[in-house]
Design a protein around this nucleic acid. Structure first.
Lengths: 237, 237
DNA sequence: CTTGAAACTGACGTAGCGTCAGGGTCTAGC
DNA sequence: GCTAGACCCTGACGCTACGTCAGTTTCAAG
């Protein structure tokens, strides 16, 4: 008759979970109280609580209950699970961040929902996903986080300004191979580098996307024109 | 018998959705094809497609199907919906980012899952959430994104270094009010400012948390000692 | 008229519990 | 011993946004 131990309600209060949740974990076999009263009420002992806290801790990492079960039972190695989870979280964060960016963009349309803008955004990001795989998108997201929003805004503002100066140089008849031309090409390359961070995979994907969607990017996204690209590539030779 | 229009399969192919999804939207009343063949097959006209693309666009913003329905029916204002959605996405991103940080922290325990570390993390973030509300957590997250990870790492490394110099000053018998003492206090305030960004609400919450968990923070998180705090506050007077 | 592809309408499954519904159990006070 | 009130029990359905059969019917070409 050693009916010591906490009842569900008390465990719920201490752990911040609900009684229903504890029932759920019990049924799934995650945390089963090792004792019951004669009337069938659950009694949680110290070992049960320890297991419960392990489960809670793993859940805070965002693992599903199924994974948690596999980890506590030893069916999954911890290191591998953590690595998978990190990647999964990166992907989710990237997806949500893109949604947030789209919302911000739509909000700029001030009151009226600009469906055309929204569709352009959507088409754009779909195009984007054709050329960059999940890992690359996560990689880009990481770079953005490392660099910080201020620097990103600076770079985005720098592009039209640089493109204007390139246009001016072309109009003035500047030789691409001249010192001025090569300086412009250097700036151009530096801005590109801010995007792909020197990763050849990212750079190639970006270039392929550019090649295959040139006219659309030029007209709808005010990207660089063919003349500008020609000038820059001539200067880089 | 003007049975023109696209069938579900064709619409699915063009929109990137599945046939099942189109059935689902039809049943929910979101996008109901305005025509059917005599045999009952769905026929989507141009107006239906337009409505479908609006729905798809709104879904890409992360809105639930219910919200999408309310927006397209005009029951919800667009501006308000977008603002709510932005906040909701911020909260989700913040939650996932915290989970990711915890995973990274657990991974540093190298192979062996350090449950004690994990529990400390969890307890810490629970403590944190007692003192900062959802808006403030989002605000902090935004600040971190703006500043960039490099700067954050710099600041985190700067703390122990500064604390060491303060200790040295105390050991050398430096007066808090001396020029050297006030310089240290200035650096101290600048590092704090990096955290709260000058927001008085954030600063007060942080101070309250510090006050009420002083011993724990000092021992488990190698935070500043009482002696150091006394020196700094004396120097600031 | 046949045949293969495509479409139709249910209906169940998913993750992690919330939320009744319709009971028993525990315990303090009388 | 009895009862009231608080607590606990075990089902069972609900929610999101579809995926995935299953069994039947329609379409379009030969």
């Amino acid at each position: 008759m050693d009916e010591t131990g906490l009842r569900v309600g008390q465990v719920a209060e201490r752990s911040g979970l609900t009684v229903r949740t504890l029932h759920h974990y019990d049924r799934l076999g995650l945390v089963c109280p090792s004792d019951r009263t004669s009337g069938g009420h659950r009694l949680y002992g110290p070992a049960d609580l320890e297991r419960l806290y392990i489960v809670v801790g793993l859940r805070e990492l965002g693992l599903s209950l199924e994974r948690v079960g596999e980890v506590v039972s030893g069916a999954l190695t911890v290191a591998e699970t953590l690595e998978h989870q990190r990647v999964a979280l990166d992907l989710q964060i990237a997806a949500l961040t893109r949604a947030r960016d789209r919302v911000l963009h739509a909000q700029r349309a001030d009151g009226e929902l600009d469906l055309l803008e929204l569709m352009k955004e959507v088409v754009m990001s779909n195009t984007f996903e054709q050329y960059f795989d999940a890992d690359q998108i996560v990689q880009l997201q990481r770079r953005r986080a490392e660099i910080g929003e201020q620097r990103i805004a600076e770079v985005e503002n720098a592009w039209p300004e640089l493109m204007a100066r390139v246009d001016a140089a072309i109009a003035a008849g500047t030789e691409p191979q001249s010192e001025e031309g090569r300086a412009l090409a250097g700036e151009w390359a530096a801005l590109l580098e801010e995007f792909h961070g020197g990763d050849p995979g990212l750079r190639d994907s970006l270039f392929r996307m550019y090649e295959e969607n040139r006219s659309q990017i030029e007209t709808e996204w005010s990207g660089p024109s063919q003349r500008q690209l020609d000038f820059i590539s001539a200067a880089q030779r």
